[in-house]
């Protein structure tokens, strides 16, 4: 499961709503164990510019990514996932999401804005196979 503090959830959803009509995106940081796998949940959210400035695709702006990685490292955290919005489709990984997944241990969080309320769902993408992970909001 993905443990997501409410403030992180709200920060992510606010960024996605603010990005409409384009897809919004950002990085999620948390603690990892020695082999690089997440050992907890998400402790920090870093909204990033969508370098594609597109309603259909996203690319995390690499300068924003660099800033996020540096800030996370200062907190002894690593990037453990990425979120992005789907403005016109369901909160389920697209073929592009699956093809471009970089880390089987990352959480891929999708914020679906197709319906009235944002729908937040999380996945692991391992060898091109999608595994949904329950999202649990915490008060931490």
């Amino acid at each position: 499961m993905l443990l997501l503090p409410r403030r992180a959830y709200l920060q992510m959803v606010a960024d996605c709503l603010g990005g409409v009509p384009d897809e919004a995106c950002g990085l999620l940081a948390g603690p990892v164990s020695a082999d690089g796998r997440p050992s907890g949940g998400v402790d920090a959210v870093y909204p990033c510019r969508n370098a594609d400035a597109s309603a259909r695709t996203y690319t995390i702006d690499s300068k924003d990514q660099l800033r996020a990685m540096r800030e996370a490292a200062k907190l002894d955290l690593d990037v453990v996932g990425v979120y992005h919005s789907h403005t016109h489709t369901d909160a389920y990984p697209s073929a592009t999401d699956v093809r471009q997944a970089v880390d089987p241990n990352w959480w891929y969080v999708i914020v679906g804005l197709r319906h009235g309320d944002p729908e937040v769902r999380a996945y692991h993408i391992v060898d091109q196979v999608i595994h949904e992970v329950p999202v649990v909001l915490t008060d931490a």
Partner: peptide, 10 residues
């Protein structure tokens, strides 16, 4: 020197 995985999707 920083190494960043390219992160993108659709």
């Amino acid at each position: 020197v920083s190494i960043l995985p390219a992160v993108a999707g659709g």
